[in-house]
Nucleic acid binder design. Structure first.
Lengths: 347, 347
DNA sequence: GTGAAAGCGCTAACAG
DNA sequence: CTGTTAGCGCTTTCAC
């Protein structure tokens, strides 16, 4: 009678299982790890013992012996509002590959951020890293990734460094297509609210705006491009500045949804009717976009899918399945809702 | 010359540090773990060696030997929209106590959810659990917690079981005070949108609504209490039903902010002006609440603080600092914004 | 197919 | 205050 059967608290170990099944611990290990070379009859016997004893492999023991944690580390800036989707995507992949996710928010202005990240890998808490901007764009972090010999994949990062493992999206192209959409509605006075300068993706969106304007032969008007900071309040501020222009823009394209919500709030407050007098468009398609009124036309950045793909790539990398194409791009798509319409009085 | 100094990839171990500092590995261990009884001079020497060798303690080694993971597991339902605040709160506490957070979303309808959770603890991946409803309210999970001998703290859960480690909030009382606030504005036709029946906290909010109505001698009107499901769309549905009543309610109190946003959207769409013709109030104070227009009057549920407290309690529990008062309550507070006002034509 | 032996890197218990 | 010894529970290596 084992300790377990006597109702004692001691967890059963691989040795208990081996004894009960009448095999060696190595064989139990093989069964646990789904190794092929075990006779079916033996496998069954071991599995029965495992069930009977309610055996569950001890994670630290396995980690120590195998030198793998089966954990991925998700590194992000502490107050990112996008982390939810990314996390969910990463979890989607982890779940199917039997990995766990250790989340590690950090202050991207902290001086020893690279040290902190390195410790996760060097201390064997995680096998690899998933990184999100702006943390992933920091020089110190770049240097760590380039030289530190640690498996990683970035999500939505700079995508400039060659050989970098990354998953990105087509910010620029799709931003241009938003401008085309607005132009097709008849807008000629189109404003743009730029995103935070520390986020490289934001510059790409601005580039896309410029390209779209040019492609549609719409002039970029002085004072119609304003600098925001990605948050709601800066949308309010930028919106106020834009509404003071005369003539006003008929459409505002914002580099993210939070700022678009701010622009809409100030428009409401100023008695500017949406979308009749002002069309507003955002970028990201956060949940808010569908829940404000009028519902926001935006661009769905497939963050969850991107993160899932990133985690899958990372796990492949950890397994040594080297792939040639390590920089992947997932397409974003235009989502038209009620916040955009033809301008009331086309030029 | 050590391997490290030769630029090799092998990570240095406690033995390397001991050798370099001229002490035993046990002394190095003491320094790492901040144990008191080490002479300052020795400590300095060890610390220098650690720096020189870029030594970082191997987590699995320490986990295996100490039988602790220094990880907390955060268990929540996969598509919870509140998890962000909770996660951040838990991380606040973890960070200062040198714990890491392993996140574990699950499908609360899954039959083997208890097994899944048990495995985290039994497999020594985490030392203790932080649980959020509805997962924490499931009978199978309750049973596991009651009998499984695993350290845990629930957040915002049932708070009925005595002896349960929990952090809750005063949903009922504060819901009543929202009614008092609306009544003080002059509202007499107050509607309520109930939350998802699987969430116990939602029933408490409804109870609070009823109590508030009674305390203010306001009648609960037939057809003014409707059943929602916590999500935006159900707010739209419930709002539509309420607006069809005649006379209409002058105020709608919703059991959460998502539903309040839905009510506001359908009001906008129906040309009902907010807050003049209809006041809307929510519960939770999610980021959305401040970003819709008009900004939503709601109740700030201090989820982040609650989670931080829960994690702190859990860590105390893991350290054996038994506390008498294991059920804590953190007060929620009324946040008045622009979505509520005196009714246009008081009865 | 299966097993025996040797660690993985650390801490616990105790000895000094 | 410091060191020695003996594992923690598993995988790895290699032998059979």
């Amino acid at each position: 009678m084992t300790a377990r059967e006597r109702g004692e608290l001691r967890k059963s170990t691989i040795a208990d299982v081996a004894e009960r099944a009448g095999v060696s611990i190595k064989t139990v290990s093989r069964v646990i790890n789904r190794e092929p070379k075990v006779r079916q009859e033996t496998r069954d016997r071991v599995e029965r013992a495992i069930t009977d004893l309610r055996y569950r492999p001890n994670s630290p023991g396995r980690m120590l012996a195998s030198r793998r944690s089966y954990n991925l580390g998700l590194i992000y800036n502490a107050n990112s509002s996008y982390i939810n989707s990314i996390q969910n995507g990463a979890l989607d992949a982890c779940r199917s590959e039997h990995y766990d996710l250790l989340i590690h928010p950090c202050d991207y202005r902290s001086p020893d951020i690279a040290e902190e990240i390195a410790e996760l890998v060097t201390g064997s808490k995680v096998d690899g890293l998933l990184l999100v901007p702006p943390v992933s764009d920091l020089p110190a972090v770049r240097h760590l990734l380039d030289t530190g010999n640690m498996p990683y994949v970035t999500i939505s990062g700079m995508t400039t460094a060659s050989g970098e493992w990354s998953v990105g999206t087509n910010d620029r192209e799709v931003s241009a297509s938003m401008v085309s959409y607005l132009a097709a509605l008849g807008h000629r006075r189109i404003a743009f609210v730029r995103g935070h300068p520390d986020h490289k993706a934001m510059s790409r969106r601005y580039q896309g705006f410029l390209e779209g304007m040019q492609a549609n032969s719409v002039d970029v008007i002085d004072g119609f491009v304003v600098q925001g900071e990605n948050i709601f309040q800066s949308g309010i501020d930028c919106g106020r500045r834009l509404l003071q222009q005369s003539p006003r823009p008929t459409a505002v394209f914002c580099a993210n949804d939070h700022m678009a919500a701010g622009v809409m709030a100030i428009a409401h407050e100023s008695g500017v009717s949406l979308p009749k007098e002002l069309s507003v468009a955002g970028f990201d398609d956060i949940p808010l976009a569908g829940q404000i009124w009028p519902a926001l036309t935006t661009i769905r950045q497939p963050l969850r899918e991107m993160a899932s793909l990133a985690a899958t790539l990372l796990i492949q990398r950890l397994r040594g399945n080297e792939t040639d194409n390590v920089a992947r791009v997932v397409d974003a798509e235009l989502v038209t809702r009620a916040s955009t319409a033809a301008p009331a009085s086309p030029d």
